[in-house]
């Protein structure tokens, strides 16, 4: 079955295109790629990118060039819950490395890896603009800030659909 946005989402694409002057629909590329990633499994497959190229009347390479440039676009499948831990200077000063280690302790995954059940992917990312609330991670749309071991426990429990266990 070939890929297609729902009618509602197609309407949203038209609204995005309308933010830019006539003939400048290429400007809609970043927002439409966000939408496509959200709708088609959390990552951008070549098929998804080709579909977006068609929607915006672009050459596929123009879409690949952009999709591979920006760190928020995922070019490989990721787990259901993507945990992106900020590791840059200010977060590092406040213990981001210990957070990465603790996630490994809990889930057995290092940055770049996904749990066997496909539930979690761990990534380290560079500064997310939450330096005053360090250490932190981004989970989908949300920032999880002032992280502690307990907060990681809670986060994992809520994503796994289980109550937080007294792990430690």
């Amino acid at each position: 079955m070939s890929l297609r946005f729902s009618d509602n989402k197609l309407k949203e694409v038209q609204q995005i295109i309308a933010r830019y002057p006539e003939g400048r629909q290429k400007s809609a590329l970043l927002p439409v790629l966000h939408l496509a990633q959200q709708e088609f499994g959390g990552w951008l497959s070549p098929e998804t990118m080709d579909y977006v190229a068609g929607l915006l009347q672009l050459q596929p390479i123009e879409v690949y060039e952009v999709a591979t440039f920006y760190s928020m676009y995922k070019l490989k499948p990721v787990g259901k819950h993507l945990l992106e831990v900020c590791q840059t200077g200010p977060c590092m000063l406040n213990g981001s490395e210990a957070i990465v280690d603790y996630i490994y302790e809990r889930l057995g995954i290092r940055p770049g890896e996904t749990t066997a059940d496909g539930l979690f992917t761990l990534k380290t990312v560079e500064c997310l603009g939450a330096c005053g609330y360090a250490p932190m991670l981004q989970q989908g749309k949300h920032y999880r800030e002032h992280l502690t071991r307990e907060k990681i426990d809670q986060l994992i429990a809520s994503c796994s659909g289980q109550p937080a266990s007294a792990h430690h």
Partner: peptide
């Protein structure tokens, strides 16, 4: 006024 979201690039 329109909001345009980037996608991760300092």
């Amino acid at each position: 006024i329109y909001v345009h979201r980037g996608a991760g690039a300092y």
